[in-house]
């Protein structure tokens, strides 16, 4: 797994994609930070992380789109599949590499809030809660991205497919409001909604059920990715 991880990290930083992702993420993060705090005269961290969550839904698929689909396209997939490494290690190695890049980008962009401490009462628990929540949400998006990338050799299709699934998860929270009469459906959508799970963290509560929710979604999509590759290995 470590070898796969190192290889992926090297590929991110010896090609344009890693730098492009980080530059775009950090630049947009800085712009959103300035817009929602400095020029709004507000130390509210929640608005920033909400915008960053929506932005991550669009940018993270660009990070994961090449993970498996590029290997399929340039026909080096067989080398990976026949390597003396378990499929789980391959998938986890790629997953951890993407997570590391995202973690670095999120951490650097979040450090901007340190500027506000001399000027406002920034709620540290709320800040950390939002940070952890976005990290978990990003983990979920990355796992979805890896799964979709494993299904196709076309990187653009992988990116678009990932964005579609992520937006479907995000839309669940909005659709919930439009179901006035069915309590059961609203409860189910509430249970599945990424927004609702995000909410407890934004108030400084580290909610165990939300943590398990994000870990479960990630685990399911990573497991599905392993299953896809397992099927390909045996076909």
């Amino acid at each position: 797994m470590l070898a796969i991880f190192k290889r992926e990290m090297r590929s991110y930083f010896t090609t344009v994609i890693g730098y492009a992702f980080l530059v775009i993420y950090l630049a947009v993060g800085a712009a959103i930070f300035a817009f929602t705090t400095l020029f709004s005269m507000s130390a509210d961290v929640t608005t920033y992380y909400l915008y960053m969550m929506i932005f991550s839904a669009v940018i993270l698929p660009l990070l994961t789109m090449k993970s498996f689909s590029e290997e399929r396209k340039i026909k080096t997939e067989q080398l990976t599949l026949t390597a003396p490494v378990s499929l789980i290690s391959i998938v986890l190695g790629k997953f951890l590499a993407s997570m590391t890049v995202f973690f670095g980008a999120l951490t650097v962009s979040s450090l901007s809030f340190l500027f506000l401490y001399p000027y406002a009462s920034v709620k540290t628990a709320v800040w950390l809660g939002n940070y952890v929540a976005l990290l978990l949400v990003g983990m979920t998006f990355i796992s979805i991205g890896l799964f979709v990338s494993s299904l196709t050799e076309n990187q653009l299709s992988a990116a678009v497919g990932t964005i579609a699934i992520i937006l479907a998860f995000l839309a669940v929270g909005i659709v919930n409001v439009l179901l006035p009469s069915s309590y059961f459906l609203r409860y189910v959508f509430d249970f599945l909604s990424i927004f609702t799970r995000f909410q407890a963290f934004t108030n400084g509560y580290f909610d165990l059920s939300s943590l398990i929710y994000y870990l479960s979604i990630s685990a399911i999509f990573l497991y599905l990715t392993v299953r896809v590759y397992d099927r390909r290995r045996h076909s």
Partner: peptide, 30 residues
Amino acid sequence: TNLIEDLSLREARLYTVIAFLPAVALVALG
């Protein structure tokens, strides 16, 4: 209150520039 107090426009612009520095540095590094 979440209001920021005593932050001048000049300081806000300065912090905005500092916030953009990591992205600029990565462009150069890349």
